[in-house]
């Protein structure tokens, strides 16, 4: 891991009174039966209201990072905090909205769009309590923000893939989360669809002021919907603005010469600080993974 990546990185918008939205402090995770870590020594701070993109190749640990933020995985080393709380507590309070990479819902269920969007909020409700008007109002607002209000009574099994994704986003924001986590939201979406998605997310961000973390291997998606980009391929390789994603940074993160693949994107000239010294090759058996040579956790400078 590059030395510059050991320190948690924050942005100027972090304020002392509010604290960071998400903190990863020297987080490593190794799956139970794996020899190598999926992610290693990741330190990262996301500020309230920030839109962070996490870019990296398939298998680079992006989804693992999201699952750690959701509290579905517990770090092998380090710690994760959501607005100062353990992710489990944050999840129980409804602070986390999640949009999955693949929609694995049973679409044969006889459920309407509105019923699906209401599920996370209802799941936390006591069985003795009738559905409060506030929840119904929040669902209507969320469906409106993603342009699905007119289809609120349509069975989910009769939606297109794009419509279904918008329902999943509405489901995530209808419970009024403080953080929205999107896992590969534009997989299989064409260029026009990606642009529409980015526009919708911009509208959602300006309307709700959410902290949004978008994970993707697609540079276009990340560049279009993020204020800041973190490049992840097991370790963090760079934090930069979307314009700072130079061909050299991308080549390092993807371990492949991607110059030309993203030729239609406006990429600024190479900035040395965005391109850390490449790591030495890791032991194939993962012997160095989750080792104890990480620097001790530090308090992020922006907190």
């Amino acid at each position: 891991m590059g030395a510059s990546m050991a320190e948690p990185v924050s942005t100027a918008r972090s304020t002392a009174d509010q604290g960071p939205a998400i903190e990863f402090l020297q987080v490593s995770y190794r799956f139970p039966e794996a020899r190598a870590c999926a992610i290693e020594g990741v330190s990262l701070v996301v500020d309230p209201g920030e839109r962070l993109g996490i870019l990296g190749p398939n298998g680079g640990g992006k989804s693992t990072l999201l699952r750690l933020a959701l509290g579905l995985l517990t770090p092998t080393e380090g710690r994760v905090r959501i607005f100062g709380l353990d992710p489990h507590q944050a999840r129980e309070r409804g602070w986390l909205g999640w949009v999955p990479q693949r929609i694995e819902a049973e679409l044969r269920f006889p459920l309407r769009v509105r019923e699906v969007a209401m599920m996370p909020a209802l799941a936390r409700l006591s069985p003795w309590v009738r559905v409060p008007d506030a929840i119904a109002a929040n669902v209507d607002e969320a469906l409106g923000l993603v342009g699905m209000r007119e289809l609120a009574e349509r069975p989910v099994g009769r939606l297109s893939g794009g419509q279904l994704q918008r329902v999943m986003i509405a489901r995530a924001v209808a419970q009024k989360p403080r953080v929205l986590l999107l896992d590969e939201p534009t997989v299989g979406v064409d260029v026009v669809g990606q642009e529409r998605f980015a526009e919708m997310m911009r509208g959602l961000h300006s309307a709700l002021g959410l902290t949004i973390v978008t994970v993707s291997h697609d540079l276009r998606t990340v560049a279009a919907s993020s204020d800041r980009v973190a490049c992840l391929n097991r370790t963090l390789h760079a934090h930069t603005s979307p314009e700072g994603l130079t061909p050299q940074v991308l080549a390092e993160v993807f371990r492949h010469d991607v110059l030309g693949i993203f030729g239609d994107l406006h990429i600024h000239a190479h900035r040395p600080e965005d391109c850390p010294t490449p790591e030495p090759p890791r032991d194939a058996e993962g012997a160095s993974c989750c080792g104890h040579d990480h620097p001790p956790p530090t308090t992020p400078s922006g907190v």
Binding site: L72, R91, I103, E104, M119, L122, A123, Q175
Partner: peptide, 19 residues
């Protein structure tokens, strides 16, 4: 359990992510 059960039955990964 009708509310969490329905959520779980409809979309298990999402239900887990939402607690």
């Amino acid at each position: 359990l009708r509310r969490p059960m329905l959520f779980w039955a409809f979309d298990e990964p999402a239900a887990e992510a939402y607690g």
